[in-house]
Amino acid sequence: MTKAKYTEGMFLATKDKGEVSFLLCVPKDAIAMIVLGHGAGAGMRHKHMEDIAQSLESNKIATFRYQFPFMERGGGRDAQSVSLATVQAAIDKARSLQKNLPLFAGGHSFGGRMTSLYCAEKSIEDLCGLIFFSFPLHPSGKPDTKRAQHFAQIQKPMLFLSGTRDKLAQLDLLQSVCAEHAQYISLHLLDTADHSFKILKRSRKSEKNIYDEAAETAFEFIQSLC
């Protein structure tokens, strides 16, 4: 793994909710930085987020992980407006710490969805693109595409890294949405992976580590834009 510089700290999410934690990791040969929001059920230090970040760092991609206020303090999820404000604050903080690296944003599940909603509302001029790890297209057991309605407002390149067994992104629906917005969306399917990137070892065709596959795909996506 490329040796990375680690920086930990806090930033103000909103005036009402206060400060939240962040973890910035920058490989010495980094080609870009991605701001990563975590899922709804686990924070930025969960093993899944650690594995995503470490694989990205091994592929020369700096990562800025951060907590949403509800995860920082514990308890119920905040109003969507709070989460969107936190996405903005995280991007602003990341950019202040690394001014020269091309900027990307996204995250796992909930974090990715909140980032997409924010980017549909606000234009970030220096944002090169979005990368989603297991975008939650719909709740489990309730397949539809309502959560994709805002994609038309995001005129930035987007990469979706999605498992073929993800119960929050029914495959035919996800493929249809991505095809509808093919001008901006690239889809990479992770064979046998579920929403948390757990795989079926016996039936998976590739022997490559699932996190390495996702990170290498992200690297190729970033390299094509920078």
Score class of each variant (00 low, 15 high):
T2G: 01
Y6I: 15
L12G: 02
A13K: 10
A13M: 11
T14N: 14
G18E: 12
G18V: 10
E19W: 02
V20Y: 07
S21R: 15
L24E: 07
L24V: 02
L24Y: 12
C25E: 14
I31S: 07
I31E: 11
V35I: 07
L36M: 12
L36C: 02
G37L: 07
G37M: 11
H38N: 12
H38S: 14
A42Q: 13
G43V: 07
H46D: 14
K47H: 06
H48R: 13
M49A: 12
E50L: 10
E50P: 00
D51S: 14
A53S: 15
Q54K: 14
S55C: 09
E57S: 13
I61P: 01
T63D: 04
R65H: 11
R65N: 05
F70W: 05
R73A: 05
G74E: 10
R77D: 04
D78M: 08
V82I: 11
S83D: 08
S83G: 11
T86Y: 01
D92L: 15
Q98P: 01
Q98H: 01
N100T: 15
L101Y: 05
F104D: 00
H108C: 00
H108E: 03
R113Q: 01
M114R: 10
T115R: 09
S116G: 09
L117D: 08
Y118Q: 03
Y118R: 14
C119M: 09
C119P: 04
A120N: 11
E121L: 13
S123W: 01
E125P: 09
E125R: 11
C128N: 13
I131S: 07
S134R: 06
S134N: 09
F135D: 10
P136R: 13
L137G: 02
S140P: 03
S140I: 15
G141N: 12
P143H: 08
D144Y: 03
T145I: 10
F151D: 06
A152Y: 03
Q155G: 00
K156N: 03
L161A: 12
T164F: 02
K167R: 10
K167D: 14
L168S: 08
L168N: 11
Q170T: 15
Q170N: 07
L171T: 03
D172N: 11
L173P: 01
V177I: 06
H181T: 05
A182K: 14
I185C: 13
S186K: 15
L187P: 08
H188V: 10
H188T: 12
L189I: 04
D194I: 02
H195L: 05
F197E: 05
F197R: 12
I199C: 08
I199L: 03
K201M: 05
K201C: 03
R202K: 14
R202V: 10
S203N: 00
S203I: 14
R204T: 00
R204D: 07
R204I: 02
K205D: 13
S206Y: 09
E207A: 09
N209M: 05
D212V: 10
E213L: 11
E213F: 07
A214V: 08
A214N: 06
A215S: 13
E216Y: 04
E216W: 02
E216A: 05
F219I: 00
F221R: 09
L225E: 03
